[in-house]
């Protein structure tokens, strides 16, 4: 149970990632928020942007690309990307459900919600559906304790979850109707 899979990992992108002009302008805007010579400060934000731009996860190629932009060593990017739990360092589905399972959510039934989603999608926590649409994860406290249970998908917090609401959410993502 507690034995570790050792890095190095093998997940790769086949092509070298590259921000488009608009994305690059945003990267430069973020870097400019820091004093001269302190552009490493932009790292976390750029990693979020890179994840969004290049398939929802950070491949070695993506991280090396970010290192190149910020003129830092790749290891400095790997260290940061693996420290912060929001970053996916392996491929994930199109929609990542992160269900909060910390105390306040647990008190009002997050465990049942997790089981419900597992059954509904036919996957366990940590897995991705065969169609590549959904990845299910658990997360530690996401700051929605008063509106629990909840799950986060991208920038959206889905709160006050019930099985019926979970059905609706999954249906909405499946049909591409994601205007919540």
């Amino acid at each position: 149970m507690s034995s570790h899979k050792h890095t190095p990992i093998s997940a790769r992108h086949t092509e070298k990632p590259s921000f488009n002009a608009e994305q690059m302008a945003e990267v430069q805007r973020v870097i400019a928020q820091y004093p001269e010579g302190k552009s490493k400060s932009a790292l976390i934000r750029i990693l979020h942007m890179a994840e969004e731009a290049f398939g929802g996860w950070l491949s070695i190629e993506t991280m090396d690309y970010v290192a190149e932009i910020l003129k830092i060593q790749p290891i400095e990017v790997y260290e940061v990307a693996t420290f912060y739990t929001m970053f996916n360092i392996e491929p994930v589905g199109k929609y990542v459900f992160e269900v909060c399972h910390t105390g306040p959510c647990m008190l009002v039934g997050s465990d049942n919600i997790i089981t419900y989603i597992e059954n509904k999608l036919g996957i366990k926590v940590g897995e991705t559906t065969k169609d590549g649409l959904f990845t299910l994860k658990t997360a530690e406290c996401l700051g929605a304790c008063g509106y629990a249970p909840m799950l986060q998908c991208g920038k959206i917090f889905h709160e006050h979850l019930t099985p019926e609401k979970v059905d609706q959410i999954i249906e909405a993502y499946r049909s591409g109707n994601t205007n919540f």
Binding site: I44, E79, F87
Partner: peptide, 23 residues
């Protein structure tokens, strides 16, 4: 500036490290 998912960054010196783009 956003963090990346780490409770510890609420500790002020960890926050500073994180804002410098580090662990």
């Amino acid at each position: 500036a956003p963090g990346g998912g780490a409770y510890i960054c609420g500790e002020e010196t960890a926050l500073i490290e994180s804002l410098e783009g580090k662990r």
